[in-house]
Computed example of a mutant assay.
Amino acid sequence: MGHVQPVDVCSFSTIGKLLRFGFSAMFGFGGRTLALAEKHRWMSPNQRRDFAVIKALAKLKPEDCEISFLPFKSSQDLQERRAQESPKSDCNEQWQMIQGQFLNISIMAIPCLCSVAPRGLAPNTRLNNGSMALIIARNTSRPEFIKHLKRYASLKNQFNFPFIETYTVEEVKVHPRNNTSAHNPEEEERPHETASENSFPWNVDGDLMEVASEVHVRLHPRLINLYGGSMEEMNDSKATCNCL
């Protein structure tokens, strides 16, 4: 049947501007794939998805980014920290930063079960545990990246690759360090009417979001209530993917 349960929600913002709310986001390969699919809306959903994935893999290239994130701290960790430190020290959060060439960056507040990933795009995440999964695919060869993608459809660990890094976080900032690899609609045969030059495509819950600057993703624990089954109840059910 189901029941009402709270669900974590993410907010996406750029400098001084709230862009939208959502549950999951992909930048890099995931964003480019959706941008390609949006240019071929005349195709059926399955054809559009397959075409976009193949074309994005054929033109696979990394994004030069700076990623800052605030590691997740459980309620127990926060209580212990507050007992040991002064109240003013809570304001000085320990942000971490990594830089480099990344093929894909995924930020997931929920597991995102779908037909192409029965265990979920972020299987270690829950609906309301107050954290997000930050999954980073560093630059690697095309065959190795394809092996990683194929793992999502199996029971094997899709993160067991040397170029994959996973973090449990509360906030993330993704800052593209140059516009040389930005999405340029003139490169495609059928330009998308809403595409803007020198912007970077994001896939947010299957919707295309184009931003030319840094994006700040912040988690809002248990922000909304939804009616549905728990993750355990969904394990044996079939789900469909509407990301593209």
Rank of each mutant, 00 (worst) to 15 (best):
T14E: 04
N128G: 07
P111F: 07
K73E: 15
L219H: 08
P45A: 10
P162R: 03
L134P: 06
C243H: 05
A122L: 14
C112D: 12
I105W: 04
V169T: 08
I107V: 15
E165R: 02
D90K: 14
S154P: 09
L57P: 08
V7T: 13
T194I: 03
L113S: 06
R218M: 08
V7R: 15
G30P: 03
A109N: 15
V211F: 04
V211I: 00
H216A: 00
S11D: 14
P162M: 02
S44E: 09
I110E: 14
N128L: 04
Q84H: 04
K147H: 09
P62I: 01
P201F: 01
S24C: 04
K173E: 08
L103F: 15
R119N: 00
I107M: 08
Q79P: 03
N242R: 08
T33D: 14
N92C: 05
H148V: 02
S11G: 08
M209V: 10
V53S: 13
L36N: 12
D8Y: 09
Q101G: 03
V169Y: 13
N225I: 02
L113N: 09
E186N: 12
L121S: 00
L244Y: 13
F163R: 03
G16A: 07
C241W: 10
T194P: 02
I110N: 09
S141P: 12
L208M: 07
F72H: 15
Q99F: 01
H148D: 09
D8E: 12
Y227M: 05
W42R: 02
E214V: 02
A153V: 10
N242D: 14
S237R: 00
F145H: 13
L149V: 00
R81T: 08
S75T: 01
V53M: 15
A212R: 02
N203M: 04
V217A: 02
L134F: 06
E144T: 05
Q101H: 12
P191H: 05
A58R: 14
S196D: 10
M231Q: 15
I67G: 06
C114D: 06
G28C: 05
G30V: 03
Y167E: 14
Q158A: 01
D236T: 02
M209D: 06
T14F: 02
M234D: 10
G2Y: 12
G130V: 00
S230V: 03
I110M: 13
L121I: 04
G120Q: 13
L78S: 04
N203T: 05
N179S: 05
R142P: 12
S89A: 08
A182D: 10
A195C: 04
G229M: 06
N178A: 07
H192R: 05
Y227D: 07
G130Q: 14
N235G: 04
V211N: 08
Q94T: 02
F159S: 01
L127E: 15
C241I: 03
S213G: 02
T166G: 12
F163A: 00
R48G: 11
P191I: 04
R190C: 11
P143I: 04
F163S: 01
R41S: 09
F12Q: 11
E186P: 00
G22I: 03
K73A: 11
M26E: 12
P201D: 13
